[in-house]
């Protein structure tokens, strides 16, 4: 798992010279990134550096202004690509959970399985219960999101994404909206997911998690990747001034 130097591994996500502007504001200024199968990449960086935007370009929640994004062998930025076909295989977990409030936890996990993967109700239910059990919420299956704590909601959201058998999981500050005592549970789920070999791209401010779990850490600032490497390199021996500042700032906090 930690052997990220194996360059022969086939990239599952490949981002080439990605630019994204909102009007006059250029948020991504040419980003290149490869994420290999089974790899856990943690993206760090100050607020506004474009981490979320980069992540959201991977499943085209944001449409890049220029540049290319490949998923496995498909160029998803090509107009011919059926993006929903790609999104089936790309799980995403949001800072604000975004559970469907009108459905129970179980129905949240079942919905896309039935409608997108066309699984039978029985199979969807079986998978849902399995995934909810994995995140430790089997007994909350029939609760509505409003009846769950933030941490529980986020774990349901993870189960919902995992039920689709994604090839890669995107986490955008999955724990930032949680009360401190609830962060642990969600991080544990993410850790065990990483241990099982899931390919993950994780935007987080949890330095401990990055250090323990990441195969590679990517530091972004001002819409570009400033520095990347294995956690020990980046954390203990940052090369760039901005990385040092950022890490120093974080550690101080």
């Amino acid at each position: 798992m930690t052997d990220s130097t194996d360059t022969s591994t086939q990239p599952i996500v490949r981002i080439e010279n990605l630019h994204k502007s909102y009007g006059d504001l250029e948020v991504l200024k040419g980003v290149d990134l490869r994420v290999n199968r089974g790899e856990v990449v943690v993206i760090l960086g100050p607020s506004g550096s474009g981490k979320s935007t980069l992540l959201r370009c991977v499943n085209l929640l944001e449409v890049p202004t220029s540049g290319k994004v490949f998923f496995e062998d498909t160029e998803i930025t090509s107009p011919d690509t059926d993006i929903n076909e790609i999104r089936k295989h790309v799980g995403m977990v949001f800072q604000s959970f975004n559970l469907f409030p009108h459905l129970t936890a179980k129905r949240n996990v079942m919905l896309a399985q039935e409608k997108v993967l066309k699984r039978s109700k029985e199979e969807a239910e079986r998978v849902a219960m399995e995934q909810l059990a994995n995140v430790g919420l089997a007994e909350r299956a029939d609760h509505y999101p409003s009846q769950l704590s933030g941490g529980q909601q986020q774990r349901v959201a993870i189960a919902r994404a995992l039920a689709m058998d994604p090839h890669v999981m995107l986490f955008d500050e999955a724990t930032s909206a949680l009360d401190p005592e609830l962060v642990r549970g969600v991080l544990d789920v993410m850790k065990s997911l990483a241990r099982e070999g899931m390919t993950m791209i994780v935007v987080t401010h949890e330095m401990g998690f990055a250090r323990d779990v990441a195969d590679r850490v990517v530091f972004m600032d001002g819409g570009v990747i400033v520095e990347e490497g294995i956690p020990s390199e980046v954390f203990d021996n940052p090369q760039h001034e901005r990385t040092k500042n950022f890490l120093g700032h974080i550690t101080l906090k």
Partner: peptide, 23 residues
């Protein structure tokens, strides 16, 4: 309805009609 609901549905591969009708 919050944008997050549309995004969550989209991120699961649901098309526009499915998003509208089920979410």
């Amino acid at each position: 309805i919050s944008a997050g609901q549309f995004e969550a549905a989209a991120s699961l591969g649901m098309n526009r009609a499915q998003t509208m009708f089920y979410v």
